[in-house]
Structure formats: structure tokens, C-alpha cells
Amino acid sequence: MELSEKKNLINLKVLVKNRETVPATILILMVIIFSFLSGGRYLSIFNIIAVSQQASLEGIVAAGMTLILISGEIDISVGSNYALTPVVVALLVKEVGLTIWLAAMIGMGVALLIGFINGYVVTKLKISSFIVTLAMMMFLRGYALILTHARDVGFLPPSVFYQILGGRIHTKFPVMVIWFILTILFLWILLEKTPFGNRIFATGCNQEGARKVGINTDKVKIKIFMIVSACAGFSGIISLSYLSQASPVQGNLLPLYAIAAVVIGGTSFSGGSGTVIGTLVGAFIAQGAINGVVLMGATSYWPQIFMGAMVILATILTTWMDKLRFRID
């Protein structure tokens, strides 16, 4: 085989092997198509800001969710967590009179506790994560509604805290995008560059095998559940900072959007492999697609139909790419 042909083969291999190729391509194609169809409105500053904000809030949760999926579990309680944590924080500030800084720390503690309980029940009591997080989701949602008597909590005393988390630079650029990127970076380093990350992949790939090699898979999973809960709580506090109020009914569809971002980003549902960078791209694709469909004049139902179809198609594509990758090796 000639040298030039060999080079082509290698390049194609790299493209397919890289999990982020597919979502990156989809993103670029999507932006081009929607810009064309919306006559340029799609790439207006206003629109980009709107999409980035939504993508960031959901993307932070999706980043944590990536780890959960890699380890072979699922967490559908993130939406209720996203509502309850800011509710707790807001109530602590408003009713108990704590400063926002202290209240936020306590709120994160609550989120971590929720994650710990999820992880503990799944690993030690050996109950499916779907059922556990389903029950937790209902329980937390009910609790948030009880605490607030189903009303939003707002009118909090001003503080620079809210600017740091949910404000804007130069009145345009939303700071939460920076927090999103930082989260992705942090989790990327955790996943790819630390032994803990290795343990996560091993646990997801083959739990029995991982145990035999001495990995405490229970500990790994508990930590991952705490991470995704922390992400949900963090995102909730950011939304509190941005909206200046905490709503007990927010985050209803958050599990769907988070999972969509992860799946579209190229992480497969069967566990053992995944990419947070892909999730970053996936979050923007998910929100960008909905935004694009709405801009084209579709009424409120079509975007969600689009979303559901996208999730299914993305899963099929990812599974197919997995098979291809397997065959190439």
C-alpha cells in the first residue's frame, strides 16, 4: 500500500475513534442549517446568549450525568434537586437570615447528602438506580413544594454573590457559561487524568472485573452520585442567582435534557465509556436545536417532538459508531 493511502486510512481511524467527532460535526451542520433557514437571526448576539444560558444550566448537570452513565447507572432525581437546593438556600437567607455565602454552602451540603443517599441505597441495598432516583425525585419534589407552600421564593437581599454566579460581563456575556466550562474542565481532568477516572471507566465497563482487581466499586459509585447531585445543586444555585428567585417546580424536564445532552454528545448508555467534552457539545446541540426550531416559527410542541426524536436518533448513531469502532480495532 502506498504511503498516501496509509495516511488516509489512519486519519479516518482517528476521526471515527474520537468520540467527539460526531457531535462536533452535528453542531457545525446544525448551526449552518439553522442560520440559513432563519435568515441570520440564529446567530444574533441575543440568540447566542439565550442558547448559551440554557445550555450552561443544563450542561452543568449533564456533565455530572456523564459520569453516572459511564459507571452504568442513572439519576433522574437531578431535576428535583435542581429545585430543592436553591429553595433551601433562599429560605435560609429569607427566613433564617443567613448570609447567602453560608446558605449556599449549606445548600451544597444538602445536595451532596442527597447524592450520598442515592449512592448508598443503590450500592449497599442493591436496588436499581432507576427506582431509587425515581423515588428520590418524587420525594424531593414533594418536599420542595411543602417547604415553599408551592410558591416561588424571591426578594432576597442583594449581594455580589449573585453577580458572580449569575451575572453578565459587559452586560452581554453570561458568567454562567464560564462556570459551565470550568465544570466540564474539572470533570474532564477527573475522568481522563486521575486514577479515580480510571476506576470510573473500569466500574462501568465490567463491574465484577473491576472488583476483582481491587477497585471498591461501591465507593466509586457513591462518589459519582455525590458529584452529579453537587452539579444539580450548583446549577440550581446559579439559576437562583440569575433569576433572583427559587421555584419549587423548576427542573421538571431537566433529567430529559441532561440525558439528551450526554447521549447526543456521544456517550453510550451501556456504560464503560464516554466523553464530557462531547457532553459540552451535546448541551449546545440540544438547546441550539430547540431554539432553532422555535425561531423557524414552530409552536411550543414541535421543539419537544424534535428533542425526543433527536435523543433516539443520537442513541442509534452512537451505538452504530460503537460497533464501527469495535470493528476497526
Binding site: I74, F130, L256, I259, V263, F269, S270, Y301, W302, Q304, I305, M307, G308, A309, V311, I312, T315, I316, T319
Partner: peptide
């Protein structure tokens, strides 16, 4: 046939069918 986890597949279908009903 497409080997999608039932959770995801039916989740997606739920969203699609529900919104078609609304439509």
C-alpha cells in the same frame, strides 16, 4: 433491533407521542 436501552427509547417516544397528542 436497534438495541437502544428501553429507558431511553420509551423516554424519547413518550416526549414525541405526548406532544403529537397536544398538537
Amino acid at each position: 433491533k436497534f438495541k437502544i436501552k428501553s429507558f431511553i427509547a420509551t423516554f424519547g417516544m413518550m416526549v414525541i407521542v405526548e406532544n403529537i397528542a397536544h398538537l
